[in-house]
Design a protein around this nucleic acid. Structure first.
Lengths: 207, 207
DNA sequence: GCATAACCGGACCGCCCGGTCAACTTGTTA
DNA sequence: TAACAAGTTGACCGGGCGGTCCGGTTATGC
């Protein structure tokens, strides 16, 4: 095996210009297609929407799952960044509720059920998800300490309930684009300490 | 075309004994398989689980959707009956919450997302669904009149939120069998009038 | 117990999917 | 501008799906 002299092979070689353009076209098309049809979106349709060949898709991402994971990873990192940033806000309760609002809004584009489907595939995605969850847990605990969220709720409870608005709205055919806010408000009211009833004997789940 | 004398053809002829047995085996197997794997369950797997041939499945129900619709129809009628029965209870609030509890519990076996998937297929199912929804709306309005449920919520809001517990729990791998109760409690607290905040400017959806 | 119609079952069909590959095109670099 | 590596492409493959069909089987009425 020979090696070209004076060539320090970069960890990943720089992408050729057309390849980079195709890659971003692909990511946009895939995000749209996954958002519309979920995991049922076919690679052929994604390629057609991006205006590239099917083979090109598999050159950029060896598997349909890898393509999905790349997209989900983006959103997860984005949300994790927001969560860490909001952790520094003065009002702990408003910080958590702002985060839930942003998360619910983002899920209009990409439901979190992908976290389940894609989480088992990609190790990087799993790590990123754990970091996001940890940041959310921190937000929740601070909001509880400030008395803005009922004490008998866990971080994981909040994580699960945060997926509700976008899911619920997906059942309404001609829903207004901000209908999810209505159900987010309902979810948040359920998390508030005022007027909270017992959650019953069912133990929470560990993280 | 000849007609056998003295034979009044019944609307649907009586099922032969073995056919009736196979049909109930099929329904049980299909319900289990749909519950576990959703719409991804394959007819071949259902047939194998029921211990019958694939052709027999299609003899009883001409389409996979028809099979699903038959199962969903059962649960919907069951729930509608319960809703009408609870409408006569003294405590209007407890009646609604009892119904939500029963509905969430049933969905552990069969998620309501099937109502969306199968609803477009079968006319009878659509009618049955409308009757169920009407019964729920009646329950909600009575609970609101009794002051047990916040006034700014509609019947459809409650219908949508009623699907939350089973859906949320489906994300938790080794969930305890009654974990859904925890999230039902959270949902119900969000529906209570005590400590309710504004739902914001987003208008509710019409039924 | 026999004739018959209802029923059963699994081989088979066409279709679509994720993924591969070898021939071809194009950006890059010296 | 020449030469090559990187990138592109669509025909192709194996597999699984919903649904069909017909030869064999079985319950049932007389």
């Amino acid at each position: 095996m020979t090696r070209a002299p004076e060539t320090r092979a970069p960890a990943t070689r720089a992408l050729r210009a057309d390849a980079a353009r195709n890659r971003s076209l692909l990511l946009a098309a895939a995000a749209a297609e996954f958002a519309e049809r979920g995991m049922d979106a076919s690679v052929a349709d994604i390629a057609r929407r991006a205006g590239i060949g099917k083979g090109t898709v598999f050159r950029h991402y060896p598997t349909k799952d890898d393509l999905l994971a790349a997209i989900v990873l983006d959103r997860v990192e984005e949300l994790a960044g927001l969560a860490r940033q909001l952790f520094l806000a003065e009002d702990a309760g408003a910080a958590l509720f702002s985060f839930l609002e942003a998360a619910a809004g983002k899920q209009q584009q990409l439901d979190f059920s992908f976290l389940r489907d894609a989480g088992d595939i990609n190790e990087r995605l799993r790590e990123s998800r754990e970091r996001l969850f940890a940041a959310i847990v921190a937000l929740v605990e601070r909001a509880q300490a400030a008395g803005a969220v009922r004490a008998d709720v866990t971080g994981l409870d909040v994580i699960l309930m945060m997926c509700v608005p976008s899911h619920v709205v997906s059942f309404v055919p001609g829903a207004a684009p901000d209908l999810w806010r209505r159900y987010l408000a309902l979810v948040i009211d359920g998390l508030r300490p005022e007027g909270a009833h017992s959650l019953g004997p069912v133990p929470p789940i560990g993280v």
